[in-house]
Design a protein around this nucleic acid. Sequence first.
DNA 1: GGTTGTAAGTTAGTGTTGCTTACATATGTA
DNA 2: TACATATGTAAGCAACACTAACTTACAACC
Lengths: 205, 205
Amino acid sequence: MNDVKSLVKAKKNYHHGDLRGQLLEAVRELVERKGPDGFSIAEACRLAGVSTAAPYKHFTDRQDILRSAVLLAMERLYEAMKEAAKAHPPGDPARVAALGQSYVDFARSEPGMFRIMFGMTEGQEDCPKLTEVGECCKLLVEQVAGDHMGVPADHPAAVAWAYALWCFVHGHSFLQMDDKLAQKAPPEQEARMLQMVGEAMPNLS
Amino acid sequence: MNDVKSLVKAKKNYHHGDLRGQLLEAVRELVERKGPDGFSIAEACRLAGVSTAAPYKHFTDRQDILRSAVLLAMERLYEAMKEAAKAHPPGDPARVAALGQSYVDFARSEPGMFRIMFGMTEGQEDCPKLTEVGECCKLLVEQVAGDHMGVPADHPAAVAWAYALWCFVHGHSFLQMDDKLAQKAPPEQEARMLQMVGEAMPNLS
DNA sequence: GGTTGTAAGTTAGTGTTGCTTACATATGTA
DNA sequence: TACATATGTAAGCAACACTAACTTACAACC
């Protein structure tokens, strides 16, 4: 939406306000358009309207750029999940399904970034902020699972079911993205499946 | 095991027997060692001990090489799944779990290829052989699910559960590969989870 | 058994792309 | 005006995909 316009408009000045942010936005757009590998600093610069040397005043490295972009995406995902959880009261059966749905929706809306987030193999292990956000997501799922099952979030059963739920939506997200194997399931079936998994979780209270 | 030895031994002659096969093997090794993106024709040639121009006598293109390597991997996966299904009689509850286990084991043993197989975004759509093997895998899962549920493989419930099972093991495979989010689950827990999913499938006969 | 055709590999290059750095330059602020 | 910050210019360099033209080995055929 705001991609091209804001990019062009902001470039009127030598110092445009937020090159760092615009570069990350450009990375995101490139990754979505040309696939996870189709990103290069040079092209991101072209898109942002700056020289290829400019990024190095804001990032140390190519990896640094990617890491930062992934971190932003991770935060977007976490926000979406939090919103989904907040939309229903604890214990509501629809809450688990909504949480899963938010995850799948994110994967569908940003497949490129999603792939990088969970498929990066180079140098993201040593990024504490990234693992921190990931941990937050995990805790959120465990919390919702625990609420649903009537046990505290750190109960082994809640942890196990949270992981199972994650596996399910994660796999579904990937299979939807590369739809060669799985014919695109209609939204209703998707919702039904999520509901089914939610109902399979036992109530232990 | 046989990588280095066979590569060196076979290179004694100008025409070594099977450059095509060795290149594909080199691709596989590179992908495993340096990640899905860490593959290049040049490096595969270096590994196979031939010049960088040699591959073009066997493959038309870089994509052609990758596609062929992926096809081989897909066939390996199908073989593993078939073996797992053959190891138990139809209806045995352990059969579903074993099928899922074979999938997860494959992902763990060849994470790089697995990522490419299900993460490729460039030019694999138009490979009929690839989609054919994928279809075979899908049919196999549906067959096993149908046997387990006491309905034919093309029964809607069997198809739905087959897809759900696939989602589950697929997601688990990915989460295991990049283990930043999910702490590595011990094998016993993994087996228990697979069993749990299998037991959740209703018997409709 | 020599001739010859062909498949398979080699050498040497071309063109492109990308990451990164050293230095110059423009802009805003005190 | 002086300085700090932010960007541009230009270049180095490495890697890679792919091509063209030459060479080697093998095999089939007379």
